[in-house]
Computed example of a mutant assay.
Amino acid sequence: ARAATLLMLALPGSAYLYQGEELGLPEVADLPTEVLQDPIWEQTGHVRKGRDGCRVPLPWTTEGPSYGFGAGGAWLPQPPDFAAYAVQAQDGVAGSTLELYRTALRLRRKLLDGEALTWSDDVPAGVLRFDRSDGWRCVANLSGTAVDLPAGEVLLSSAPLEDGRLGPDTTVWLGL
């Protein structure tokens, strides 16, 4: 997911981020039926669950009845493991999903001056690489093996490099 995010944010055009994506929050798939509130749940006679699993309030702190979302409990129950995804748990932590998103969005605003892409054909199987007209490169390794990085200064990587190589399921932004 982190690699896909960097690949998407490297492309021209608008980007849309869903609530909780920047924290790496999973959908809460096991909400009890008695707490479901989505209109689809009622309209289908309690057959289709609807969106409630992805509408569970964001965790801001690692403690409290609603993990900092409010003074009382949340309108949909947050699972105990949400504490690990809280903003408080990830803020300023190198390598956290929140800091990856913050860095990517900051760099994107700075780097995206042009819309033209030049795709590279001379890449190993399973690797996507394009250069942006505004002076940087995106390389996404969708293969199962590490690959050599092309020249450039590493600006951001979705995962640590493996001895200077781009590991599987990893995307990197390079300054040219």
Rank of each mutant, 00 (worst) to 15 (best):
L25V: 03
L36T: 03
S14K: 05
V87Y: 05
A3G: 14
G95K: 02
E153W: 04
K110I: 08
G70A: 10
G72H: 05
A3R: 08
V93W: 11
L117F: 02
E99W: 03
S143F: 02
A74S: 10
R109P: 14
L31Y: 04
T44K: 13
G164L: 12
P32A: 14
P168S: 06
A116S: 12
Q19T: 11
Q37V: 07
L105V: 07
G135C: 06
V147C: 10
V154C: 14
T61R: 13
G152P: 06
A10V: 00
L149C: 10
D163K: 10
S96L: 02
W119Q: 11
W173E: 08
R129L: 00
L142G: 00
G64I: 09
Y18M: 13
V147W: 00
D91W: 05
G64Y: 06
E22Q: 07
F82E: 08
S158C: 05
P79K: 01
L166W: 00
R48G: 05
A83W: 03
S14H: 11
L7S: 11
G135P: 11
Y18P: 03
A71C: 00
A15G: 15
D113A: 14
L17I: 05
P65Y: 15
T170I: 06
A71W: 15
Q78A: 00
W41Y: 12
G175W: 08
L23Q: 04
G144L: 07
Q43V: 00
L11S: 03
A4N: 15
G144D: 13
L174A: 04
G152L: 02
G73H: 12
L6Y: 07
E99F: 05
P26Y: 09
L25E: 05
V56M: 13
L98D: 03
S14Y: 03
L11H: 09
L107S: 02
Q43C: 04
F130E: 10
L17N: 10
P79M: 01
P80R: 01
W119F: 04
P79S: 00
R48E: 11
A71Q: 14
G164K: 07
L100A: 01
G24P: 01
E22H: 00
E34K: 06
L166P: 02
G144N: 09
A125N: 05
F82N: 08
L105N: 11
D134Y: 12
S120R: 12
G164A: 15
T33H: 13
A83P: 09
T33M: 07
I40A: 14
G72S: 07
L128Q: 06
A29L: 13
A4E: 15
E21Q: 14
E21Y: 01
L11T: 02
A84C: 09
A29M: 10
E162Q: 11
N141W: 01
A89N: 01
T5F: 15
R132D: 06
T33S: 14
G152M: 08
T103Y: 04
V56Q: 15
T170A: 12
D121H: 04
L31F: 08
R51S: 03
S158L: 02
G92S: 06
L107T: 11
A3S: 11
A1H: 13
R109E: 15
L155Y: 14
E99N: 07
A104E: 02
V172Q: 08
A1P: 14
P65A: 08
Y101V: 01
G164V: 01
P32C: 09
D113C: 14
L166N: 04
Q88V: 00
D134F: 11
